[in-house]
Design a protein around this nucleic acid. Structure first.
Lengths: 202, 202
DNA sequence: CAATAATTTTAATGACGATTAAAATAATGC
DNA sequence: GCATTATTTTAATCGTCATTAAAATTATTG
């Protein structure tokens, strides 16, 4: 999940990154549980045993906190996508792997992932960036579908709408999954099949 | 879409209800477009050619505005469900009809429907009520699946997870659909098939 | 251990937007 | 048309957090 070679990193910087990452997961948890406006910085801080003001050592403001949560979400999605592409045998298999990996990350140790409900209230530059990442991810998924149609593993379909349908289902998970490991196992077991059941060429 | 017999209603009350309904749709539009915290009452008022203070003639406060938006959303879903049950021939057919009707309402004249992202910030009593409606709707959908499994039109599956998957996809629509009629037509045409494609018993 | 840097806290401040009250306007019914 | 009721506006007020500055604490390094 890490980018490039950070093996020989300043230990201070490393601690900073680790703590900030913990903070982002705490924030994601609060946002998913209480909504954005219902989450005060104190809520997030409480989860970390800190005071609200301490958060400002890690982020410039609340908007940036959301922004970083969304970057994390995009990272996780991209990672799952790349791994699936690396390992997939054909279009359908790659789609199924992508779904499995992304879901595993979401409900597993990488999580929680913040539901992207507040993109509009990001500052323009951040919003543009997040939307761009989101757009690219959707495009990558649609490309998987097209690959599957081309290689005959997936029945012809409207890839745009099919992508919207499947990604929507995925995006909604953080809205109802709140960390119960038993439920997590069930999601990982069921969702990839359910979401790809309608795709296979007969 | 109306409840019971309001034929002989006080015209003043009727105007009130009509205007408030217009208000709720304007609010839903803002919430979906700008997020809850990003939406000021002035935004909603502007859409109606009113001043923000005028909204308080129709709702007690901003929370109640969201609450009423969610009640509307629940109404629309229930209406689609009841109509599908009334008209459906078997389990699968009823599921497909429900999907079609609900989507038609969402992207059509009944819309926009507010995405339910801020349930947690409702006041406890309202939250409880909305969650209860939402729970009942999910249960009704799962019952459709079970009916289909029983009558052989739907292949056996985990109805809870299948329901979560399909409803999530539905719930996410307001996040990316913003009123373009061409897109609306495409959603209505494609989504019911896509979402039910994996269900049929082979 | 001393000195410096990193992290957190305490204690204000401030802004933004929700909310309210009273006044003004528009609609309705007799 | 007058009186009453319904609706909207204007003009404050008010609270809630987000945010900041300075001080205090904790960690690191030579």
């Amino acid at each position: 999940m890490e980018s490039s070679s950070l093996g020989t990193e300043n230990p201070v910087d490393k601690r900073f990154r680790v703590k900030r990452d913990r903070m982002l997961r705490a924030a994601a948890r609060c946002f998913n549980l209480k909504g954005y406006s219902g989450t005060s910085l104190k809520d997030v801080a409480d989860l970390l045993g800190l005071t609200d003001a301490a958060l400002y050592y890690y982020v410039r403001n609340k908007q940036e906190l959301v922004y970083l949560c969304y970057l994390r979400a995009a990272d996780v999605g991209r990672e799952a996508m790349q791994r699936a592409i690396r390992e997939g045998r054909d279009g359908l298999d790659t789609v199924q792997r992508y779904l499995r990996y992304h879901i595993e990350y979401m409900v597993g140790a990488e999580g929680p992932i913040a539901i992207m409900s507040e993109i509009p209230s990001l500052k323009p530059e951040h919003r543009k960036q997040v939307l761009e990442l989101s757009r690219k991810h959707s495009a990558a998924f649609e490309a998987l579908l097209e690959r599957g149609i081309a290689d005959g593993s997936i029945a012809p379909c409207d890839v745009r709408m099919t992508g919207n349908a499947i990604m929507g289902s995925l995006n909604w998970i953080p809205k109802w999954f709140h960390g119960d490991p038993a439920v997590a196992a069930k999601i990982v077991e069921e969702f990839p099949r359910i979401l790809s059941a309608g795709l296979a060429a007969r």
